[in-house]
Every structure is written in C-alpha cells, then in structure tokens.
Design a protein around this nucleic acid. Structure first.
Lengths: 391, 391
DNA sequence: AGAGTTTCGAAGGAGCGCTTCATTAGTAGC
DNA sequence: GCTACTAATGAAGCGCTCCTTCGAAACTCT
C-alpha cells in the first residue's frame, strides 16, 4: 500500500514553505517593501529578510529604487523578476492562429494573428504557428531561447499527453502529436489543452469569473464547447475529455447553430462563416424572422446550459466565444431560460476577454506550469533561476 | 484586498503538521510500532517519539500490548483512540429511516431501521428518527452525550445551512429546518446533505469507487439522483444544489421509471412501490415485455448518464441506489450505451454498498467533520481530547 | 537644528528535528 | 543454560529556523 501524503517534515521544509509564501506575496505585486512582505507572509522582519536574501541570491527577486516620500527612513523595495523568463500562449482555431508572448507574471508583451483556412493541411497550419510565434518574438525583441514554456489551446479532444484525438473543426488535426511537433519546433516544454477549457481558465483568472470557485464557461461559436472550473481549478477529467457535452444529440447543441445559419433573412451567397453573425445582427435590429431564429437557437443552447447548471450548481455561467460579441442579444434570454429550469439559478455574465480568451488562458496555463515547476512544495526547494538560455 | 493564503509560518506550525501527519498515519491502521510510524511520517525516530508523546498526553493515542514474536526487542505499539467519540449517520428516505452508530474511524458499531410512510407528517418522521437513534445507542450501550456529531442524508434539495428547500419524495419535509430540529434533539453538531451525494461519498471511500478521483454516482431508484466526486472531493456546488439533473425534462429522468411501472406485465393491484421491482425481476427471467420496458428505461437513464460522463469525463460511473439490486440486468446495457455516446467511455460498476450506502456516506461525512475540526491545519494545533461528556 | 517616524542590522534566545551511541529486551543456535 | 544476534529504547549533543529586542541610520516635518 503506498504511503498516503508526505505531509509535514523537516525544518528545511518549513523554510521552503516560507520561501514559497514570499514568492507568492511578491508575484504580481509590483515593488514591495520588506515590512509589507513580512506582514503578508506572517513572518517576522528578520526571518523575512533572510528568506528574501535567499531569493535574491537565487535570482528570483531584485531590488528596485527605494520609495520616495513618506515618513521615516525610506524602505528598500523588491520585486519578482517576472522578466527573466517568457511564455507563449497559442490559440489554434479553424480560421486563425493567435499567439501571445508574456512574462512570468502572465503580463502580455506582444500579440500576433495568422489567418489559416480550416481545410489547410497540417504543415501549412504548423507553419502559420511558427510565423505567429516568430512575430511575437520579433515584436518584443526576444528569441526562441528566452522561452520557458509554450501552452496551446486547440479545438477538439486532446489526450493527456498532448495528441489531438479528434477535431471536427480542423480535420487535418485529428491524430496529430501536436505537443511533440511543437516541442521540436520550439525546444521547450509544450502544454496542449482544449481551447474552451483554457478560455474558462482565463475568465476565472482575469475575466468575468474572477474569484469564483465554480464556473461554467460556455464557448458559443459556430461550434460549441464548454469549460469547467470546479473548486477553483480547471477540470480536465480522467482522460482529459471533460466538457464534450456537444456530442450528445439530446442536448441539441449540434443542431443549435443551424437555426442561425438557415434563417431565411440571410442573403443568398453569404458564406457559412458569416451567416450566424448576420442573423444575430439582424435580431439586434429587431427583424422578426431573425429574432425567431435566435429564439430557437437559445432554446437549444439553454438545454445544455441548464444541464450543466443543474448538475454542477456553479456560482456563475460565462457566455464566451465568438458569439459573445452578441451578448446583448443572447445574455438576457439565456438568463431567463436558466431561471426557469434551475432551482438555484446561477449568475449569467458575458465574457470580458472576448476573442483573446483562449490565448490568455494558454498564457495562464503556462504560468501555472512554471509555478508548479519552480514554486510548489512538490518541486523541492525553490531552485536557482535558470541561466539566460532557458530552463 | 484580502491576503491570499496564510501558508508557511512558525516553528509550531511545523510541529502541528507533523502531529497531523502522525494522526493520519495512525488512523485506521490498528496497532502501530514507533518505527513503523516514523517510516510513515518520514520523521526520525526521536522526533516521532516526541510527537507521539504529545498525542498521548492529549488523549488521542493509547499504548496497546507490545507485539509478541519476532526478532529483537519487542516494540511498544500504539493506536488511535477511535473509541473515544461516536458519530451517528442517518438516511432519511420516503419509506425508511436508517441510522448507524460509528466510532471516530467510521467503523460501524450498530444499525437500526424505522419504517415510515412517505406521507407521514413531519413530527411522525422526526419521532422515527429519534427512535432509530435511540435504538443504535441502546444496541451499542452508548448515550446521547457520547455523540460528537450527527450527519444526515435526506432526499431533496438541502440548503448550505441544513434546511430542506424542497423534497418531492417527502412532501412534509419541504421548508423544514432539519439541522436546527435535530440539533435540539441531539445536542451536538448536525450536518445535513442530499442523500445521493452522501452515497457517492461512501462509494468513494469504501465502495466500488475507492481511490478514484472523479466519480459519477447514479442513484437509481423510484426517483433518480446523482452525486459527484470531483478531484477526490464531494462536489456540493455554490448553493449546495449540485446533482439535480433530474429536473431537466430533456434528460428524460423524470419519466424513466414510468417505463418500468407501467409495463403491461405487472399484475393488477401491485403497489406503485413494487411495480418497478416486478418488471426488473421479470426482465431477469427473460420475459420479452419486461425486457422491452427495461430497454426503454435504460434509454432514458443513459441520456443523463451520458451527459454527465461527457461533461465530466469521470474515471468511473457507479450504479447505485435501490435498483442496483438489479445491476445484473442494468449494468451491461448501460455500459454499452455509454460506450456508444462517449469518446472516452468511463468504467461502469455496480454499487458494492447497496442499501446502506447513504448511512455509510453520512458516517463518512461526520468523520470528515471531526477531522476538519480537530485534525486540520486550519484548526490550529491538535487539541486535547474533549472530556467524556462530548466535545 | 531637533523631534518624530520608520527602517535597518546585529545579537541573543527558544523550539524543533536530526544524528549518534550506549543500553535493554527479546529470539535463535549450541 | 550460555552466547550471539537483532531490533527497539532513551539520553546527549548539534544545527537550523524563527522570534524578540535593541541601538543606529535615514528621511520628513516644525
């Protein structure tokens, strides 16, 4: 029988915990004085100083110019060196590849976009990915060797080891060892996950669902998806296939978009990509036919949304994805439908991150990965900052 | 802005962690030698001894007779004093009130059952609860003042503070402040939760889903329910209403049992309670009409089950509740249906705890409560054992 | 320039866990 | 019945981490 949890332990472990506590207090807090840090960590000033000194020696923390103004002796100030490593977030969709470059705090430094055709062959899309990343690096004046991790959100079902098991939106993607290919390309750790899940993560960290413990994120676009935050953590499931509610016919998500695409009001010859947007815009203007189509669409959308809300009882449901541009048309009716179906209806909010939610979620995922690697109890003592060539 | 997590800290905190580690290593492990304990906790022998000495002083640990046989000097042995406190688990259903008495390890010492009519008034059911508990106490020779906690599983939606917001099975229950009433009755902390959720907890701790991180528990009986274990923890949801998928018509769980009740093969005059069981038994014998009814029943059951499996991607789905007696008829077809609907089908297993799953889950919930209260980091240092009159 | 305020840096003390070693209590073999 | 072996016990001494306390330093306000 394996021993349960290796809790407690050594004195060095206590130091490690306090180092982590200090790192967490410094992360994203800008310039912090020693006294402030001591208060946040709960340690005494001398202990905090010792911990901080160690972090400075390891290269994770730097001193910045002392504070000006105020009473008493000016305090020296310190900051987390978020600029010592860089991360790439990728959103691989049917029509676009988006990339963003961020520092270790997840602060965005550069963004690019590369259009691709949904039916483009694998290599073409991979080339677009490479261009998008190269563009980000050039914009920020960085190099490949500055990258510590690349996180990717893509449509479809992704296995735990980063292969694309199946993608309806990008046919050529099915069966690809995406993580492996990108590792070759970028020479650093690559994390791959489903795009809807990463979007949910972003909304939870910096968007409309900030602070919520239980979140249902509805990725509404031509094709639907869902991402779940449960107990403050992204839920992936045993086989990393959580959120694939679309596949169940009774949930009516497969046919939902059809109501928008096939609305009679859509002019002949409108491309299938633009039809839904046309109907939504027409509904906003008050065209009766369009409004009826949107109503039918919402009826179908609400079935799956209600199933999730009833099953999980989340604090908030986020309406995100491409169609969330039309949140003004969709939000209130969705809320009304959920209030009819649910005993304890959740809040319903529109995404605040819009089109960028997947890229931002990928960045957040990469930040988490770095944190797990360097700043968790399991990872051993806080390690020295890797040399400038990357980890 | 509130300070995030009060991690790390004092030297005393380290001792606390090690005390907890020792308690956890002792819980449910019977008699343990000092060396074995040292190995499990990861501490050195002398440190382990000191920690153990403290726990003995506080009254949580006792020495037992030294081990006989074996090489070398016989080791002194120690055990967790699970018998110093007692817990009650209750299952309040439409037709029965079940009670169990357990020690602090969750080991069952006595069980009783009191029949009640579904339409019985509140006070009658409350009296049955009192009788069931009194019976347990008498069987084990204990008294009310020996109880440290009472945990209750009941049908219906339970608010976080222990009121019954709504119960379809027990009409008189709706609106009752169950936790308040039982606290008056028993004079100790009372925890109330939905019965399906507690059953899921029991299967995760000691039943068919032991060790699984993500579990969907299907409570199949006259009325359906669901309980979710996510990331190893019972999922309650923001308003403690998680699992109420039944309420959604599209999921077809409301009408499912009807296929069994209304099967032509059921003899005239069979009571509504027994009709479904009759059909299931007939299906097992191979009666074509019954088999067709069970098929239709399974079609409906599978819709909700598939929705849950697709959304959460659990490791295992447990078929539990009253109808799990007929798991031989239901399990394989359900598995086949899930394999058709799911990209990565979960394992499907029958409950191993049967009728007792709710009572056992209530006990497990009560054990968790005691653990949270006495043996967690948040609870401060491990407290002295309360005096014999209860906590 | 002096009082007040806040931070800095060093010294001394207490708690906790680790290693080490002599001692003790049993079994196995002759 | 005696000796050799084995494994646990108990006490002593060490090192690490955090704490409290104090005088000195640096800057603002009057």
């Amino acid at each position: 029988m394996p021993h349960p949890p290796p809790t407690g332990g050594d004195l060095s472990r206590l130091r490690r915990l306090n180092s982590l506590s200090a790192v967490n207090a410094l992360r994203g807090a800008g310039a912090v004085t020693l006294s402030a840090l001591a208060e946040r960590t709960g340690l005494s000033r001398p202990s905090t100083k010792e911990v901080l000194g160690e972090l400075i020696d390891l290269g994770w923390v730097a001193e910045v110019s002392p504070s000006a103004g105020g009473m008493g002796r000016p305090a020296r100030r310190y900051r987390f060196r978020a600029d010592r490593g860089h991360l790439i977030g990728l959103d691989i969709g049917g029509h676009n590849v988006r990339a963003a470059l961020a520092d270790l705090d997840g602060e965005i430094l550069a963004e690019t976009r590369q259009p691709v055709l949904p039916l483009a062959p694998r290599e073409e899309r991979l080339a677009a990915i490479e261009r998008a990343v190269a563009g980000c690096l050039a914009l920020a004046g960085k190099q490949l060797c500055d990258l510590w991790a690349v996180a990717v959100g893509t449509t479809g079902i992704v296995t735990p080891d980063g292969r694309v098991a199946y993608s309806a939106t990008i046919p050529s993607w099915t069966g690809l060892d995406l993580a492996g290919r990108l590792r070759e390309l970028f020479g650093c750790p690559v994390l791959v996950d489903n795009d809807s899940r990463l979007a949910a993560l972003a909304e939870n960290r910096r968007g409309a669902a900030r602070g919520a413990q239980d979140v249902v994120f509805l990725h509404v676009a031509r094709r639907m998806g869902a991402g779940l935050i449960i107990d403050g953590k992204l839920h992936r499931g045993f086989g990393a296939a959580a959120g694939e509610l679309v596949m169940l016919p009774e949930v009516r998500w497969l046919r939902a978009t059809g109501h928008l695409n096939e609305c009679e009001i859509v002019p002949e010859g409108t491309s299938p990509e633009d039809a839904a947007g046309y109907t939504l815009a027409a509904a906003r203007r008050g065209e009766p036919l369009a409004m009826a189509a949107v109503d039918r669409y919402l009826d179908d959308l609400a079935v799956g949304a209600a199933a999730m809300a009833l099953l999980l009882d989340p604090e908030v449901v986020i309406l995100g994805g491409g169609f969330s541009r039309s949140a003004d048309v969709l939000l209130e009716p969705l809320r009304a439908r959920l209030e009819r179906s649910c005993m304890r209806p959740p809040e319903v909010r529109a995404s605040t991150l819009g089109e960028e939610c997947v890229v931002l979620g990928a960045i957040d995922y990469a930040v988490d990965h770095v944190d797990r690697h360097y700043f968790t109890t399991e990872a051993g003592p806080v390690q020295a900052l890797p040399p400038a060539t990357g980890p």
